[in-house]
Design a binder for these strands. Structure first.
Length: 859
RNA sequence: GCGAAAGUGGCGGAAUUGGCAGACGCACCAGACUUAGGAUCUGGCGGGUAAAACCGUGGGGGUUCGAGUCCCCCCUUUCGCACCA
């Protein structure tokens, strides 16, 4: 803001009120809203309104809001305000995902305690949100790092433990050296840490707490089919993540035996077992060491395979490595035909899927085919399409790999099972294997149990004790919360920081009174975000995590809005948690949210905003220069909410300019307006008193209300909603010369202004409320009903027909809206331009599209 | 490799079901008002032409009176999955 501008404003007081100064308007209302309950939800059943729960994903208090947050909340806030004005009892809460590693890193770097750092960030970000005018019900604020919240994480953990859903086991886990802690499978992306994209995850063998998410594998999968309000993309991602696969386990006896006499393979294609020409084991398979024996050559080969696999896994391109293997010299016996097949070890077999052993069927599996080709293993065709019914003719089919599964496929070379279809064979062979005791049907999943132990300080302490006599003992419920100690020396070395706090660690066993040590790991912060949205329904409750009846009123969440990056992590954990809580009997819904919306990323100059790229736009800066309304409205106007948003400052300026136009129109003409007519959709005055321009404005008003209402109810294309308001304001400017002349009814003007303000309310709440006051309205803008439109008034009374000859646009003709087809045809065919285009051609037919277009087809 | 989404002026993007391509905004150009303008208001703005014709929605075919929209083939980008047996 230059000095010149300010001076001019002061020198010309009559100009001053017409100048749109968002900082003045917004500061004024910002201060007033501090003491205004705003968009607070009414307690269940105290309001006649229907409930509507709109939720945006809670932020991590990193220090400052970024544009992604602003966009997310601008969408949610517009919806919340629209729903509120549409007569719903809206719950629109906000909170803080306040535990997590950045607080610890900040503590190490700047020597600030994590709690202090976090709470300071929250205070700042909350102030930013308020300045941006987001209408949250702050009486329900949830901060996950406070004992009032995290004690219930501990309470839930005890419930999980009691139900056998939390357990401790030693296992190979993902370890991020940068975070100095364990990660869940969901937190490993392409072999790297989800927070440190450059840091490769290592593996460590540690004793850890796990949550049995796999108990709900099937329900988590089946539930996806019913979540029709969720993006298909998210549902697909979750389906893939759960990775259900039906098949069979089959035992192959090891010829000559080792300490165990068999190796069990997992297959989804037991019907092809007569085509199995080798067994392939993962390099880490427990039988490998014995099979390889003392042969140093074999031994080093297996080591190589293991290394290749590990390297590929760390590089994140497991699919790309070249297949290698080595023959162990030993054989296994196919239980179906007693055939001896060689046992190999191969680098493409994964120990953590199925049994880490497969039967290799080169004729009907691409990978097996590639491998068999390389090592000259036999390729035996055992299934063919029925239409052939016999071994393929030379050169047909082209690829020897034929994973036939169609109903009309047919087994060959498969003993008693020959001639069966693929499906029949799977059933029969599974029966035979089960009866014979050498196999059984099974289902495997990719989904693994959720490892929740973190060797970090800033998280919820896991409420467990280790007693010298009694072993693992849960902290009794009455002793909750297990408070996270303050003043802890934080380093990234030497394991859990809590382990270095003797006052915390050393305690007595609640069972025997003897010495006990506390668990020093903390919980994954995704525990916090798995159920926070339930806490909003009654955030102050002291004796329970939630009140079932209150939750029952508000749930499920009607609309959840957030980034697609949470499609698996947060959204699968919170679905699990809901099912667990339901089985605990404290909630009744099966799923947390009916509808999910994932908004697109905010980018600038073709790249995601990031400090390293130096293309970060600060919301504070935007608010200071253009105002909160312009910043928010631009984030909705630039593109539809589901798409990537390319931040262009000139665009914010454009929206700012538009808001100025709207502001000036209302300010200039407020005095000329008459008394508005009562009734939300009623027509203010009879047509006869209106000039054509006034009628046009009235029509445009109703069309605009219609468009915006439909956008809210349907596609959420708020960019076109904003464009519609802009068009409307442009028309108002074009008709302004008639205002005050008597041609433009004062009552219509009053109505137009009021409704314009109402339409602006979800997008530019500061400006809307300022103008609302300026119009002399006393009632709260948010409590005023959303304007209705009258379809009859929105209807055009003249229609411009596009006139084509052979599909090419030749003319435009205007007709009264209700003109019959005949009248239109007649005038079209008589039209000069049409006749010129027809020349000497013969009219074959005339296509008439009512209200739109006429196409004369001629030859 | 598999799957999904997308590709439209100088730029962000409109075009709910096949029916006037480019709404709205930015940038740009011109004018008005001004001592002044990075304010405001008015007009213009896909290419092409004197004006038309004509050409234009990643490329190539097709269906249709009519295709950005539907079908087939290909290219590019983004996202997801990727030895899952």
């Amino acid at each position: 803001m230059s000095d010149t501008k300010i001076n001019i404003a002061e020198n010309q007081p009559e100009q001053r009120e017409l100048r749109y100064e968002p900082e003045r308007i917004e500061e004024k209302w910002h201060a007033r809203w501090e003491s205004d309950p705003g968009l607070y939800a009414a307690e269940p059943h105290t309001s006649k309104r229907k409930k509507y729960y709109v939720l945006e994903m809670l932020p991590y208090p990193s220090g400052a809001l970024h544009m992604g947050h602003v966009r997310n909340y601008a969408i949610g806030d517009a919806l919340a305000r629209y729903m509120w004005m549409s007569g719903y009892n809206v719950l629109h809460p906000m909170g803080w995902d306040a535990f997590g590693l950045p607080a610890e890193n900040a503590a190490i770097k700047n020597n600030v305690p994590p709690r202090q750092w976090t709470l300071r960030n929250i205070a700042h970000m909350k102030a930013q949100m308020k300045r941006l005018g987001f209408a949250y019900d702050w009486s329900r604020e949830v901060t996950t790092c406070l004992p009032e919240y995290y004690r219930w994480n501990q309470w839930f953990f005890l419930k999980l433990y009691a139900k056998g859903l939390a357990y401790r086991k030693k296992s190979r886990v993902n370890w991020c050296p940068e975070c100095a802690t364990v990660l869940a499978n969901e937190q490993v992306v392409d072999g790297c840490c989800w927070r440190h994209e450059e840091t490769q995850v290592e593996t460590r063998d540690l004793e850890q707490w796990f949550v049995r998410t796999t108990n709900y594998s099937d329900e988590l999968l089946a539930g996806l089919d019913k979540l029709e309000g969720w993006p298909e993309k998210v549902r697909t991602m979750q389906r893939n993540w759960i990775g259900r696969s039906e098949g069979a386990l089959v035992d192959f006896k090891i010829d000559g035996g080792i300490s165990t006499d068999k190796v069990t393979v997992f297959t989804t294609r037991i019907d092809t077992i007569f085509g199995a020409t080798s067994i392939q084991l993962a390099p880490e398979h427990p039988a490998v060491a014995e099979l390889v024996g003392n042969d140093p050559h074999l031994h080093s080969k297996v080591e190589d395979l293991m290394r290749e696999q590990a390297r590929a896994r760390e590089a994140g391109d497991v699919g790309a490595i070249e297949k290698h293997g080595v023959f162990t010299g030993r054989h296994a016996i196919n239980p179906f035909n007693q055939e001896k097949v060689p046992i190999w070890v191969a680098n493409y077999i994964l120990m953590d899927y199925g049994t880490g052993a497969i039967m290799s069927v080169p004729a009907h599996d691409e990978r097996d085919y590639e491998f068999a080709q390389k090592y000259g293993l036999e390729i035996r065709i055992v299934i063919l399409p029925r239409r052939i019914g016999q071994p393929p003719a030379p050169g047909e089919p082209e690829s020897p790999v034929l994973p036939y599964t169609e109903k009309d496929s047919l087994l060959i070379n498969s003993g008693e099972f020959s001639e069966l279809s693929n499906q029949e064979a799977i059933e029969k062979m599974s029966d035979v294997a089960e009866k014979g005791g050498f196999g059984k049907r099974t289902v495997t999943y990719r989904l693994k149990d959720w490892g929740i132990s973190r060797q970090r300080y800033w998280g919820t302490p896991i409420p467990m004790l280790y007693c010298e006599k009694c072993g693992v003992v849960p902290v009794p419920e009455k002793d909750l919360p297990v408070l996270l100690p303050e003043n802890v020396d934080i380093t990234l070395q030497g394991g859990s920081p809590l382990g270095r706090v003797p006052e915390f660690v050393n305690t007595t066993c609640p069972k025997c009174g003897g010495n006990a040590r506390r668990e020093t790991d903390t919980m994954d912060t995704f525990v916090d975000s798995s159920w926070y949205f339930y806490r909003y329904t009654n955030a102050q409750l002291g004796d329970r995590p939630l009140d079932t009846a209150t939750v029952d009123y508000w749930f499920p969440i009607d609309q959840y809005i957030g980034g697609v990056e949470h499609a698996i992590l947060h959204l699968i954990y919170s679905r699990f948690w809901t099912k667990f809580m339901r089985d605990l009997g404290i909630v009744r819904n099966d799923e947390p949210a009916t509808r999910l919306f994932t908004q697109g990323m905010v980018i600038k100059d073709g790249a995601k905003m990031s400090k390293s790229k130096g293309n970060v736009v600060s919301p504070d800066d935007m608010v200071a220069r253009f105002g909160a309304d312009s910043t928010r409205m631009y984030s909705l106007f630039a593109t539809s909410p589901d798409r990537e948003l390319d931040w262009q400052e000139a665009g914010v300026e454009g929206v700012h300019r538009f808001l100025g136009r709207a502001y000036r129109f209302v300010m200039r003409n407020a005095h000329a307006a008459g008394k508005p007519q009562s009734g939300n959709g009623a027509r203010p005055v009879p047509t006869t008193e209106q000039s054509p321009k006034a009628r046009q404005i009235e029509r445009k008003l109703h069309q605009t209300i219609k468009r915006i209402t439909e956008d809210f109810q349907g596609r959420w294309h708020f960019n076109t909603s904003v464009a519609a308001i802009m068009e409307f304001v442009n028309q108002l400017y074009a008709a302004e010369d008639e205002i005050g002349t008597g041609k433009f009814p004062a009552a219509l003007l009053a109505d137009v202004q009021r409704r314009l303000v109402l339409l602006l309310a979800p997008f530019a709440p500061y400006l809307a409320v300022e103008l609302w006051e300026m119009l002399g309205e006393k009632e709260s803008l948010l409590r005023h009903p959303w304007p209705a439109y009258d379809p009859a008034l929105a209807k055009e009374d003249e229609i411009t027909y596009a006139v084509q000859v052979n599909g090419k646009l030749r003319s435009h003709l205007v007709f009264p809206a209700d003109s019959p087809e005949e009248a239109v045809r007649e005038r079209v065919l008589a039209d000069e331009k049409v006749r010129a285009a027809l020349a000497d051609k013969q009219v074959v037919k005339v296509i008439f599209v009512p209200g739109k277009l006429v196409n004369v087809v001629a030859r």
